[in-house]
């Protein structure tokens, strides 16, 4: 009896801790704008992101980088860093999750990536082509960090652009600071994934595009 209670305790304790381990807080803030890229036939080919980092992380990222002029960095000088960025992002699935009519879509490796440095902050530009173009009635694109190490926020102005979308397509953006949207998201996600450990998804930015 004691032994069993003991292992029960141990298990419960381990689970308490594992659950708690998700309680990280963001160390990096990203202000994002995203463009959905459409082909001529109206199918979606990919996503182009522009992510602007906060000044603290920007200072960290450019630490030790060589530049001709002190305090400024050209696109070329930032080239290797951009390379590192997109390579590292792979592990996190680029923090970009797409579902076409409810079906998960995958992305290829990023193309056309570069960094620019303006007003002491870095912006990472990159394009994520879909593995295969899709032409769904509804596309849901979510941008968030599961572990909430990075706090993604869609830009205030023109956060999402549909590039070459067929007429009649409607875009809706649910920001995480909209309490009702988050709650809905949580329920839906919980339902769809069958897991509720995705703490960061409460902070997801959800872009929904409905096309006729």
């Amino acid at each position: 009896m004691n032994m069993r209670a003991l292992f029960g305790c141990l298990l419960a304790a381990a689970m308490t801790l594992a659950a708690g381990a998700a309680n990280a807080h963001p160390h990096v803030w990203i202000t994002a704008t995203s463009e959905l890229l459409y082909a001529a036939d109206g199918s979606i080919t990919g996503v182009r992101h522009a992510w602007t980092f906060d000044d603290m992380f920007s200072a960290y990222a450019v630490q030790g980088l060589e530049s001709k002029t002190k305090g400024t960095y050209t696109r070329e000088e930032l080239g290797p860093l951009a390379q590192t960025n997109v390579e590292s992002l792979k592990e996190y699935a680029y923090f970009t999750f797409a579902r076409a009519d409810g079906k998960k879509e995958r992305f290829q490796e990023p193309v056309d990536y570069f960094l620019d440095y303006k007003d002491t902050v870095l912006t990472l530009h990159f394009t994520l082509p879909l593995k295969a173009p899709v032409k769904p009635k509804q596309l849901v694109l979510e941008v968030f960090d599961r572990s909430f190490f990075i706090d993604f926020k869609m830009a205030k102005d023109n956060p999402v652009k549909l590039v070459g979308a067929p007429s009649g397509c409607q875009m809706k953006l649910d920001r995480p600071n909209d309490g009702t949207a988050s709650a809905q998201q949580l329920n839906e996600q919980t339902f769809l994934n069958g897991e509720n450990s995705n703490f960061g998804m409460m902070f997801a930015n959800k872009i929904t595009v409905d096309c006729p």
């Binding site: 706090d151 995480p176 600071n177 309490g179 988050s182 709650a183 949580l186 409460m202 902070f203």
Partner: peptide, 11 residues
């Protein structure tokens, strides 16, 4: 702060 789902208790 807005970045939280105040609805769920844990959140």
């Amino acid at each position: 702060r807005p970045a939280q789902a105040a609805d769920s208790e844990a959140g």
